[in-house]
């Protein structure tokens, strides 16, 4: 771990990869906990369309989540990664997590099931 983490330079919008270098997504958002007895504390890094859209407009984020729910893609909520799971900060940020099983792959799984998997040759 680095001693000092610059939120914008080292984390936000960086590529996240899992232990096997599979892409998880980008660090689309950060969540801090405001504490009465101390400085704000980073509690999660968010990954997903609704997280990145929330930076532009809350309404867009809600619309994207609604579409995801209606199509049965998933909850539409961004994946929240616990800072405990961050193992390395570099050009990419390595996270101890099984990427394809997370909510970050909800659209990937949905598209595989409903579209790509049905096209002949998708297994080749």
């Amino acid at each position: 771990m680095v001693d000092e983490l610059h939120l914008f330079r080292d984390l936000l919008d960086k590529q996240l990869v899992d232990g096997e270098d599979r892409p998880l997504g980008k660090a689309d958002g950060v969540v801090f906990e405001i504490r009465a007895d101390g400085p704000p504390r980073l509690v999660a890094v968010e990954v997903g369309a609704s997280a990145v859209l929330r930076r532009v407009s809350r309404r867009l984020a809600e619309a994207s989540a609604r579409i995801a729910r209606r199509l049965g893609v998933g909850s539409g909520e961004p994946l929240r990664v616990d800072p405990e799971r961050f193992v390395h900060f570099g050009k990419e940020v390595k996270v101890d997590i099984d990427a394809p099983r997370t909510a970050a792959y909800a659209w990937e799984r949905w598209l595989r099931r409903t579209l790509i998997g049905r096209i002949p040759g998708s297994d080749a």
Binding site: W107, E108, R109, L111, I116, G117, I119, S122, D123, A124
Partner: peptide, 8 residues
């Protein structure tokens, strides 16, 4: 990759 493995 196989199309199935990068559906998006």
């Amino acid at each position: 990759q196989r199309p199935k493995d990068d559906a998006r």
